[in-house]
């Protein structure tokens, strides 16, 4: 191989490397890795639902904490447990006191089968600090609408009774009560940890 060819080879390699680095850097200009809400940040709507002990849960009482909200149902075998396992892992990776400032709230999309007790028992399997919520269909429909949650009872037969198709996105609410970031189902846990650390620092 002559020298010119070698140089061209090395040159083309370096060029491709530079393109790769540029794509990596410029594709993520934001410091957050989840999907961010633009300023002015939308205020997270009130969530006013029933806890397992019968008391009311109000999202506004968690000001000062970071809240992660996910909508799902307890008969869900795949996506809901996967998401809850990932959120548990994210909190474990935060370690220290910071994890206490992150509250995970799981709101049912299946009130006919999910009582507040059942939802709480379900999330307890992942982390007893997680908050499981249900309520009347009227109260829930308001929360689903406020958070843009799609949910429908699938007209498909299953031994599990029925299946609920639903939005599978985690919303992050900052300590001031604003919607800041959301994470799609395929988001790696390390991205969620990264964003939690950033928001807890502010």
């Amino acid at each position: 191989m002559d020298r010119k060819t070698l140089l061209i080879g090395i040159g083309s390699f370096l060029f491709l490397l530079a393109v790769g680095v540029a794509v990596f850097v410029f594709a993520k200009p934001a410091s957050f890795r989840g999907t961010t809400f633009a300023e002015p940040y939308p205020v997270a709507s009130e969530i006013d639902l029933t806890r397992s002990d019968g008391s009311r849960f109000r999202l506004s009482e968690l000001r000062g904490d970071v809240v992660l909200v996910f909508f799902g149902y307890t008969s869900c075998p795949d996506v809901c447990p996967t998401t809850l396992a990932e959120l548990r892992q994210a909190l474990l990776e935060l370690q220290g006191q910071d994890a206490d400032r992150v509250k995970v709230v799981f709101v049912t999309v299946d009130p006919d089968r999910d009582s507040p007790e059942r939802v709480q028992a379900y999330v307890d399997q992942f982390n007893p600090a997680f908050i499981g919520l249900s309520g009347s269909k009227t109260d829930l429909e308001k929360v689903w609408a406020d958070y843009g949650v799609f949910r429908e009872i699938a007209d498909e037969q299953s031994a599990a009774g029925y299946i609920v198709n639903h939005t599978a996105r985690v919303s992050l609410i900052d300590p001031q009560g604003n919607l800041r970031i959301s994470f799609g189902f395929d988001t790696p846990v390390e991205y969620i940890v990264h964003d939690l650390k950033l928001i807890l620092k502010k």
Partner: peptide, 17 residues
């Protein structure tokens, strides 16, 4: 025991036997 496929359409997950 059933064979299922979860599918994401945008943000929505649906499960199909």
């Amino acid at each position: 025991t059933e064979l299922h496929l979860s599918e994401m359409e945008g943000d929505h997950v649906s499960m199909h036997q």
